[in-house]
């Protein structure tokens, strides 16, 4: 039914959005690439000079980069593992006949709506504080030494907070997928006397495969850029213990004013994210045709 006239209209209507997004993407990104090739420090204005790939060389050979890359991968990987496994368990539980399901569901999604700065500070000060935190009290009551979470296990603490924020997302999506499982398939499996474990591994898990992929990809995109939780709890420390790539680039730009170096780091972050994005776009694109 798309006549030539309406096709033309459709293009006109979409044009403003495409244009602003194009500018938003290409202008700053182009500037980042250009800055990354310069010696450019905000504390030393007027002395910008072209130095080619030197910033990349510095950034990529800096031991801080490897620490940050390792932290980033550990953070993303751990949070994915916790939220996927936890999310499947929570979703399976929520799919059971339970009283007050609606209320429990609200409890479970709630953390997703908490702004990152709030969840980070509440966990740090009310729960994980080594003196007044609830965890310290639990440890003491059970006869253990309270743990100073952010000094002794800083990255683990950040992982815990971020995982708490993303568990609801995984659980909600997996539950939605779970509920679309064919009831007849369930009954057929029951009639054939399939045990709960085989049922899970041969029927439920394959059915969830697509949803799990979606969760992994979307979470990865956001988790690569975790920033606020680190910013308000540890400031990247102690040392570099909780510095991820995003925080490293931020520190280089706005704390050390090294525009050139930070830009090179930013481009490295973009390349990393693009590897994930390529998979994501293909997956969603496939779905779009169906």
């Amino acid at each position: 039914m798309a006549t030539r006239q309406s096709t033309f209209l459709g293009r006109i209507l979409a044009a403003p959005s495409i244009l602003v997004l194009f500018l938003w993407m290409i202008v700053p990104l182009g500037m980042t690439i250009w800055f990354s090739l310069l010696r450019y420090n905000l504390l030393d204005p007027g002395n910008e000079s072209f130095i080619g790939a030197l910033n990349y060389e510095y950034f990529l050979t800096d031991p801080a980069f490897f620490t940050a890359l390792g932290n980033t991968l550990l953070l993303v990987g751990s949070v994915l593992l916790i939220t996927i496994v936890g999310g499947i368990l929570v979703a399976l539980l929520m799919d059971q006949p339970i009283f007050g399901q609606g209320v429990v569901r609200l409890f479970i999604i709630a953390p997703f709506f908490v702004m990152p700065t709030v969840s980070a500070l509440v966990w740090k000060n009310l729960l994980m504080h080594p003196v007044s935190g609830l965890f310290a009290w639990i440890a003491t009551s059970l006869g253990f030494q309270p743990v100073d979470w952010f000094s002794n296990a800083p990255l683990f603490s950040v992982i815990l907070i971020v995982a708490w924020q993303w568990l609801p997302f995984a659980a909600l999506i997996l539950l939605t997928a779970l509920q679309s499982l064919d009831g007849e398939q369930k009954e057929a499996a029951q009639m054939d006397g399939v045990g709960p474990f085989s049922f899970f591994f041969y029927i439920v898990l394959p059915h969830l495969a697509r949803a799990i992929t979606v969760v992994i990809l979307i979470e990865t995109i956001f988790l690569l850029s975790v920033f606020a939780e680190i910013f308000v709890t540890t400031g990247g420390g102690p040392g570099l213990a909780t510095t991820n790539i995003a925080f490293l680039v931020y520190a280089q730009a706005l704390l050390q004013y090294d525009v050139g170096g930070a830009s090179a780091g930013g481009i490295v972050a973009v390349v990393l994210a693009n590897i994930v994005a390529a998979f994501m776009v293909r997956l969603i694109g496939k779905n779009l045709e169906a």
Binding site: M25, P28, L29, M31, T32, S225, Y250, A253, L254, A277
Partner: peptide
């Protein structure tokens, strides 16, 4: 999907 740090500067 572009990470914000890529364009922060």
């Amino acid at each position: 999907m572009m990470p914000p740090v890529g364009v922060l500067v």
